[in-house]
Design a binder for these strands. Sequence first.
DNA 1: GATGAATGAGGGTTCATTCAT
DNA 2: AATGAATGAACCCTCATTCAT
Lengths: 211, 211, 211, 211
Amino acid sequence: MFAEAVVPPPSRPAQRAAREAAILGAALRIFAERGYGGARIEDIADAAGIGKGTLYVYFSSKRALLEGVVRAAADPGLAAIESIATQAEGEPAAVVRVIVERAKRALRNEITPVFAKVLVAEGGRAPEVSAVYRKEVMEPLLGVIADVIGRGIERGVFRPIDPNLAARLLLAPAMAAAISLEVFGVGDAGFEPDSLLDTHADLFLAGLQSV
Amino acid sequence: MFAEAVVPPPSRPAQRAAREAAILGAALRIFAERGYGGARIEDIADAAGIGKGTLYVYFSSKRALLEGVVRAAADPGLAAIESIATQAEGEPAAVVRVIVERAKRALRNEITPVFAKVLVAEGGRAPEVSAVYRKEVMEPLLGVIADVIGRGIERGVFRPIDPNLAARLLLAPAMAAAISLEVFGVGDAGFEPDSLLDTHADLFLAGLQSV
Amino acid sequence: MFAEAVVPPPSRPAQRAAREAAILGAALRIFAERGYGGARIEDIADAAGIGKGTLYVYFSSKRALLEGVVRAAADPGLAAIESIATQAEGEPAAVVRVIVERAKRALRNEITPVFAKVLVAEGGRAPEVSAVYRKEVMEPLLGVIADVIGRGIERGVFRPIDPNLAARLLLAPAMAAAISLEVFGVGDAGFEPDSLLDTHADLFLAGLQSV
Amino acid sequence: MFAEAVVPPPSRPAQRAAREAAILGAALRIFAERGYGGARIEDIADAAGIGKGTLYVYFSSKRALLEGVVRAAADPGLAAIESIATQAEGEPAAVVRVIVERAKRALRNEITPVFAKVLVAEGGRAPEVSAVYRKEVMEPLLGVIADVIGRGIERGVFRPIDPNLAARLLLAPAMAAAISLEVFGVGDAGFEPDSLLDTHADLFLAGLQSV
DNA sequence: GATGAATGAGGGTTCATTCAT
DNA sequence: AATGAATGAACCCTCATTCAT
């Protein structure tokens, strides 16, 4: 008899969460495009489809918004950590390849390089925030990777080197690639991320497994 | 009759060059500290020991100053390229170690990570400039490195892989280290750059030289 | 079957009046503390124990709220006038003392100086409102006082002066005291209101009764 | 041969002082008209004939501007004090009349009521500032007046009352008049300031000199 | 050439008011 | 009726740039 609302209005808490996500997404994009200083709150609000004042209902200041962006980006990082940890019992070389696959996937996700750039550009300006990222994402991630490599060394399948440094060396090409893609543009960077990381996996494992 | 200036004033062109260098140094420092958006022309002028208006005698706008900073940083990069090129005829493995040594030196120089950060943070804002850096520094540098590795492959001492990708993989840990040091702070980054790069050289060559 | 509300809800009109009074009280306090411009509707609503939107059910705008505050303060003033008028037949000197006693009481009431301050600070912004106060409170009040003094002059017990000016001179110390207390704070104003007004009554009557 | 500049440009320090005075004058006027909260920096700058940014060269914030206004208004007050002090040796009753004459003059000056209103309206918001005014102007002024009255009491020409309260009572009508003129407007206040203060002087002295 | 006072466009933030729930 | 999330106009303040000295 009566027309159903085609899209039922989301419940209040759902609406709130959806808007917060929309704001964070818009903010990440615009911070990356124009830098923190160059980003205008009004543009972020427009991109999120809300009024300028509404943004302040969700984030008390531009700075708090930056913090929110960084914190939100920590979640996929944590997911990666758990995903690696669950496989940590496997063959170390295979786990290393899994890690590289995850890095390839992350690079394909447009968020990663964008976030990397924001973190680099603004990390110094928001030390608590970058410290949170370091402690909650980078260090646990490096930790589980170091564990995997350490086990490979114990088992005698990897050459004996400092597992902490090895963990960093495993991630370094992904970090460098993310940055290069952002700074020079995907088209101009001059390499294909998947090939780079595949080659890296081969070379890294070859080195690690050589006498 | 008239007192001579005890320190004879530098000749005009010399003074001009000295001031320009002072401004560029101050600008690099302050761009790195506060970002392009957060840097104030007046602070840069103060740090360079000149008046705000005087800065405009040397650089026509804030943007031109950023371009100047990026261009000035190209010089040491070019020097590195030449230095590598002159050794390019040597034993490829030895040249790889020389390259890593240069990277270690660059990381010890406080300018490098600072410049890396500025390039990352502001590169998007000045695309012609970052393109210049890419074309005049990064690509030639990667080119000479690829040549060295390519010769190693030809000689049969390195495993056959894409020399361009290998060149990027050789530099990646230095790039990642520079970024980490800037973002998280030397004290908090959690690794020692020299050890990281030494380990990298070992592992990279081991991989490259393994079957 | 259903629990009765332990405290029966007040009748609708009574609730309305009570809320209006609560809002006006909160508004007077906050206007005095922070000025009209500095007062936030939300803070007034909070102080009145209602939601921000609810305030607009009772007052259509911030400006209407200011008018309401001034109008509400007219009532005690009118009460004072009537109280004086009923005594107006008495001995003029005694009535003058009664008036001063009422002024002392008003100063002891924390509302008076607060209202005085709001009227001074915001009167210009709401000229119709301050005009209402002048016409409905100040002028009738000065009128009955002038009548009392006029009668004293007619009876030959007061020296012949303009009764209108005398009425203003009788109230001036109370006005000045209210303002000083508000501006400098009760602790720092440097005088005790009761003593000031007692001394004033003595001096004023001594002058009025001298040849 | 060449046209002389008709108005020679003022020297730098003179220009600076002139602009500061222009800003303070404009600010006093506009603070009085619209209140501190209602006053817009841009309007004050316009009224002072300068750009909005220029105002910030002279005063670091809106609040500092308010402080400047109050401080500037202290000067004529201090002048009044000195003028009274130099006459303090005279016949006390004559000095009292001199004080009332000065008050009449002050009321004729349009600045006084305007400033009084600003002080009342914003004093609470800028306690340091109103405290400065109280300590540097009001208290010294009341002090010299109390001295004069105290000497009259010692000489037996004034009735023995608390000289501090008497000093306040002497000034109260001027304060009340200033406020009334500002709040209700000169036309609507309903009295003529000079007559009010003349009558006050008569009545006050009559009271003070009566047994 | 060197300087810094002057400028005004621009942007972060606040808050009175509205309106869907 | 009551609420508070949403809104955008308005305002303080900053800072790149200009220009008179």
